[in-house]
Design a protein around this nucleic acid. Structure first.
Lengths: 167, 167
DNA sequence: AAACATTGTGTATACTGTACACATGAGCGT
DNA sequence: ACGCTCATGTGTACAGTATACACAATGTTT
């Protein structure tokens, strides 16, 4: 048997992301995952303390990807950022759901690159004379708006062609 | 053994709602549920074709409760309705999550009492000369906004005292 | 080469949803 | 009142799940 897989942790994470994106959290199984990677179920426990811990890591990876997509948007006005955000959600429906499934007691924010970019856009639009609290509140409002829109789209409550997205 | 429980279906549904509200979908177990109600696990299958089917019914019940709360709001302007909506979400965090967990291929809307009330509020604010399409779009926007806000609150991303909720 | 730590395997357990055959008893027609 | 029928429950069984614990294989350090 080939012990020492190479970088099993990364392999597991990648496969886990793929599995979640394919079928969602509910269909995700440690055993199936380990079999795919070609390793015993228990091997997973050397790198993650539990299934839940692994899913948490997958979620973090999702947030990182989202931040990447955010940084990659050329025009950093609120409208463009909003569209990027929604696009990401639609491209990674199950991963996005996992990120906001309430597993983590608190989703990162201050440390989050995405939120910083959003706040800058809000500040830019406000035009200089805006209190920090106002910027924060408007950022939250904007986030809530696009987040809700993604969720409604993912749930099939609304269709893309019937929404009028704008700030 | 006491066959014919009386109204087992209702008893199961009630207990299921309670279980979901207590610990969320992931901790929900058919066996624990049946034990609580005092019946064999398989008895459940006389009334629901699967665990998933049962959870779907629980979700529907959640939507009905939400509509009740919506109808109970005295001032049916958008602000009051929005606050009712958010309050419901915060009072039933796990149930609310279940309702928007993507189990149902499409969440009801046209048949939904809540959405009708929302549309009336939007129409009232628009002041008469608004196309139906515009009313629909604004309703969706409003829904996305409050829905996203509830989700961010439930996830602990934002706190109640730092949001500035308004339309 | 020998000792040690890391990272995998093997075995076992308790729990899950659910399929299938059977038992119970309520409500009906006679 | 009797027996038939059928809805609604039980009993048994199975495959799949996460995961705890002891052990084996490998990589690393001395």
């Amino acid at each position: 048997m080939a012990y020492h897989h190479g970088d099993l942790k990364k392999a597991l994470l990648d496969a886990a992301v793929a599995a979640v994106e394919a079928g969602g959290v509910e269909s995700f199984s440690l055993r199936k995952l380990s079999e795919q990677v070609g390793v015993t179920p228990n091997a997973v426990y050397r790198h993650f303390s539990s299934r839940e811990d692994l899913l948490l890591a997958v979620g973090d990876l999702g947030f990182a990807q989202l931040a990447d997509a955010f940084e990659a948007t050329s025009d950093r006005d609120m409208d463009s950022l909003g569209r990027s955000y929604i696009q990401f959600g639609l491209q990674h429906p199950w991963l996005y759901r996992l990120m906001f499934s309430g597993r983590r007691t608190s989703v990162p924010r201050a440390e989050d690159r995405s939120f910083v970019i959003l706040q800058e856009a809000v500040r830019a639009r406000a035009g200089g004379e805006a209190t920090e609290r106002h910027v924060l509140q408007e950022s939250i409002n904007a986030w809530a708006y696009v987040h809700g829109m993604v969720m409604l789209l993912l749930d099939g409550v609304v269709e893309l062609d019937e929404i009028a997205f704008s700030f």
